[in-house]
Structures are given as C-alpha cells and as structure tokens.
C-alpha cells in the first residue's frame, strides 16, 4: 500500500517538476511590453505645460499648504505665475487671482480665473497689481489653499 502511494506521490511530483517550470517560463515570456507613445494629444486642461524644473527655477516660490493635505507651489516673476500641485490630490482645482484673502473658504466675487492646476506646472500671465493666488476646488466648492506670490 505505502509503496503504491509513494510511487503515485513520486509520479505526481515529477509531473509537477516538469510542467511547472515550463508553465512559468511561458507565463513570464508572455508578459506585456511597455506601451509608451512618442506623442500624445495636448493637455485638454489647456495652456502649455512645461518642464517641471521651472517651478524651482523661479526665485522665491511660495508653498501653500492645502486643507486637503498636500500643497501648492507658486513661482512668480514680474510677468508670470507658475502654479503646480504637490502631494495629496484634490479634485478639479482652479487657480484664481484675488485681491485679498478672506478667512472663509469661499471664492470672492471679483476673483479672476487664471486656469486649471495640476501636478505638472502651468504658467499664467501675472495680473497687474498686488494680489494672492487662491486654489479653488470646483468639485468641493471651496478654496483649499492660498499663497502670496513674491512681489515683482
């Protein structure tokens, strides 16, 4: 009895010893190849995105912590503002130029839309005069961060 069982054990295991490596090699050989594209459609959230190092390039980049965690960076020059999101994601964030900061998280009537914000930096024309950048989540209906960009 025990011999029969052991022979069956051996036969079963030998089958596995042969079949398993074959199956494993076949499975690994069939793994997907990378599918990158030379070009993809332009960013539908508009305006040219550009080299992310440019945020760091702009002197005095301000960091604005977000109420959702994460933060936004605002780089400023006399003509441009560069905005980008860091860390924790937030839904449908738009950057606005506002004259002054209200304690409440609502967007003031005179807020001026700069444009969408994402993890890749975007550059917007800097409005005249003094102001702050407010980060407004359209999906949450709330201002989640603001920053005072460096003066011209």
């Amino acid at each position: 009895m025990i011999q029969k069982l052991r022979r069956r054990h051996a036969a079963g295991f030998l089958t596995l010893a042969v079949a398993l490596p074959v199956a494993l090699i076949l499975a690994l050989a069939g793994r997907r190849q990378a599918t990158r594209n030379a070009t993809v459609p332009a960013d539908p959230r508009g305006l040219a995105t550009f080299d992310s190092s440019s945020v760091a390039d702009i002197a005095n980049a301000a960091v604005a912590p977000s109420t959702l965690g994460g933060s936004f960076v605002v780089g400023a020059s006399s003509h441009y503002l560069v905005v980008a999101q860091r860390g924790e994601p937030a839904p449908d964030v738009l950057a606005y130029w506002i004259a002054s900061i209200d304690a409440v998280a609502t967007l003031p009537q005179d807020a001026r839309l700069l444009g969408p914000v994402g993890s890749s930096p975007r550059r917007y024309q800097r409005p005249e005069g003094l102001g702050h950048v407010a980060f407004f989540s359209l999906a949450h209906g709330a201002v989640i961060a603001h920053a005072l960009p460096a003066a011209n």
């Binding site: 599918t35 990158r36 594209n37 070009t39 459609p41 960013d43």
Partner: peptide, 10 residues
C-alpha cells in the same frame, strides 16, 4: 489610457 516617453498621461 496612454502615456508618452516622459510619463505624461492622457
């Protein structure tokens, strides 16, 4: 879901 060489996603 596509990506370019630099990893930009569309």
């Amino acid at each position: 879901w596509v990506e370019d060489e630099a990893g930009a996603v569309r």
